[in-house]
Design a protein around this nucleic acid. Structure first.
Length: 562
DNA sequence: ACTGGGGGCGCC
DNA sequence: AAAGGGCGCCCCCAGT
């Protein structure tokens, strides 16, 4: 059973019951209080069909109402457009409606970054047309059925992701501002007044000046490059790995400055003021914000939290954080995708790289220019396996990586061929898809012109690297999304309801999830995570020997999960 | 004063 | 022979 929702700007709505194929099975019903109406009908277990959880759901959450399932028209439209090679076209209900009728398609509203939680309720825009939403939804179901297998699961998982993103943005990650402040005071000195560097940072800047004999702004790459050049050390850039190569007293100081300066500017006291309130960090997640299906965030830098800062994420008293990450997700995904039996057998192990190590035992002569370095940093067989796989998935490989790729090719031809094929498709300008059908964007017109002129040129190879990586990264994102949806359902089962009173998701970062849970349920949460990972593997790949083990830690502080 | 590209680096 | 995927966010700096 489905119920379409057309939200009114005054907090009311129009509801329209639908059959599972999307056809209306009743009359439009007007309600004055959407939250109350949803709460009441949620007991029937419907799938809510609405324009976008991004807009509709936050006001419901604020009213204390949560739902189990939805069909997010906007997210689904994005997936379907991409699948049809029309990546980036307007995805709103109105746009989808207009497209289906060959009418002029209105541009999407820009995602506002000023007003935090966007909401229909506090805008004076036009009311949504529930019959239009229902019609677009029905059309989407038909397009899903006509598309590649997996699209149905993908749309459901993406919609669940929309709910989860809104819920995590609402509930927030437990955050101890006092610990954050104490850590920063220790690292940088006390919070400086506006426009001033923290004491420690200023001291380092002074030391930089001393080392060069004149004032150099370490925040300015141009000034630093010039200073090293004038000192007889020409460098192409001030990247850390470049500076580490040269022997000048300013190097360690500049590097320390840059490390601390980044902590300060990206996640310092200003960030704390802006993003942490009432003991919670509430980022704004953007579902499908990355073309591969990974999420992005807007404003809070939630997916780039420095590891050292994780000690500020601490469970409430009597609660725990259950932190879980999928071990070696991407190579496992490749193994399952390619159906390479030898490779999959290795991926049936806990440590995939170790299981592959024997194959690379003697491979790859260390022919580094510096013999000393080669002897010291000689990679283990396990390291070689890792390098070979990363090279295969990223399209890279320098020196030894090339030889190791050769080993991969001869021992695991199907896995090798899978990513090679994706690269060839990309070089020819074709589209590639994830396991569930998420599709890469088409190359630009400019690319087609360049690629046509000089085949095999840099642009083509770059595109090949992109599509090579896309099939793996996007399938890993599929898997993570399916896991997330499954876990959300299981956590609701543990608590008896969707909500933050019991165990609930508080953080998600590509292949890692964090659940905030009453201590008593931590064990059950860990079990739910393992079951969800297993379910995701089966839903995505059917029968496969590949396992997706989760590394799970139950901790007070996020930093304690290693 | 504002904007946008580039450098650099945080996370995966 | 060489070859390195995806983001967000900060600062600087040149252009307007």
């Amino acid at each position: 059973m489905r119920i379409a929702v057309g939200v009114r700007s005054d907090g009311g709505a129009a509801l329209l019951p639908l059959a599972d194929d999307g056809t209306p099975v009743g009359a439009v019903e007007r309600v004055d209080d959407l939250a109350a109406a949803v709460a009441e009908r949620e007991r029937l277990g419907p799938r809510w069909v609405w324009s976008a959880s991004r807009v509709v759901y936050p006001p419901l959450l604020a009213a204390g109402v949560r739902v189990a399932r939805c069909h997010d028209v906007e997210l689904t439209e994005s997936l379907l457009l991409g699948h049809a090679g029309r990546y980036g076209e307007p995805r709103s209900v109105r746009a989808a409606w207009a497209r289906s009728r060959d009418e002029p398609v209105p541009a999407d509203e820009p995602l506002e970054d000023a007003g935090r939680q966007p909401s229909l309720f506090d805008e004076s825009g036009p009311d949504e047309d529930v019959e239009m939403i229902a019609a677009v939804h029905a059309g989407q179901l038909a397009r899903i059925a006509a598309g590649s297998a997996g699209l149905s699961l993908l749309a459901a998982a993406e919609s669940a992701g929309g709910l989860i993103a809104a819920e995590m943005g609402h509930d927030g990650l437990p955050w101890r501002a006092d610990l954050h402040d104490a850590l920063y005071t220790e690292l940088l000195g006390p919070r400086p007044s506006l426009g001033m560097r923290p004491r420690k940072l200023q001291a380092l800047a002074d030391q930089v000046a001393e080392a060069f004999g004149h004032v150099v702004n370490p925040d300015s790459p141009a000034q630093v490059v010039k200073a090293f050049k004038d000192a007889g050390f020409p460098v192409p850039s001030t990247r850390a790995h470049v500076l580490k190569q040269i022997d000048h007293p300013a190097v360690p100081i500049v590097l320390e400055y840059k490390e601390l300066a980044r902590l300060w500017t990206a996640h310092g006291w200003t960030w704390l003021d802006a993003w942490v309130h009432d003991g919670r960090f509430r980022p704004e997640y953007v579902v499908g914000g990355v073309v591969s299906g990974r999420w992005a965030t807007r404003g809070g830098g939630a997916l780039q939290i420095p590891k050292v800062l994780r000690q500020a994420a601490v469970a409430d008293p009597g609660w725990k954080l259950v932190v879980a990450d999928a071990a070696q997700l991407e190579p496992r995904v490749l193994a399952a995708l390619a159906g390479d039996r030898a490779f999959a057998a290795a991926a049936a192990q806990g440590d995939l790289y170790a299981a592959l190590a024997h194959v690379f035992e003697t491979a790859g002569t260390t022919r580094t220019a510096s013999g000393v370095a080669a002897a010291k940093d000689k990679p283990s067989a396990r390291d070689k396996a890792k390098i070979a796989l990363l090279s295969a998935m990223y399209g890279g490989g320098t020196g030894e990586g090339v030889q190791l790729l050769g080993v991969l090719r001869s021992r695991f031809p199907e896995a090798y061929e899978y990513v090679e094929n994706a690269a060839r498709e990309g070089e020819r300008g074709r589209l590639v898809r994830s396991r569930l059908g998420r599709t890469c964007p088409p190359p630009s017109e400019a690319w087609r012109e360049v690629a046509g002129e000089e085949s095999g040129g840099g642009a083509a190879r770059s595109r090949g690297r992109f599509t090579r990586n896309f099939v793996v990264q996007a399938t890993a994102a599929d898997w993570a999304l399916v896991l997330l949806a499954s876990l959300r359902r299981r956590l609701a089962g543990l608590s008896g309801a969707y909500g933050s009173e019991g165990a609930h998701l508080v953080f998600f970062q590509h292949d890692e999830v964090v659940v905030h849970t009453p201590e008593k349920q931590a064990e059950a949460v860990a079990t739910a995570i393992r079951e969800s990972a297993e379910e995701a593997g089966h839903l995505m790949f059917g029968r496969t020997p590949v396992v997706f083990p989760m590394q799970i830690a139950t901790v007070d502080s996020y930093a304690d999960a290693k």
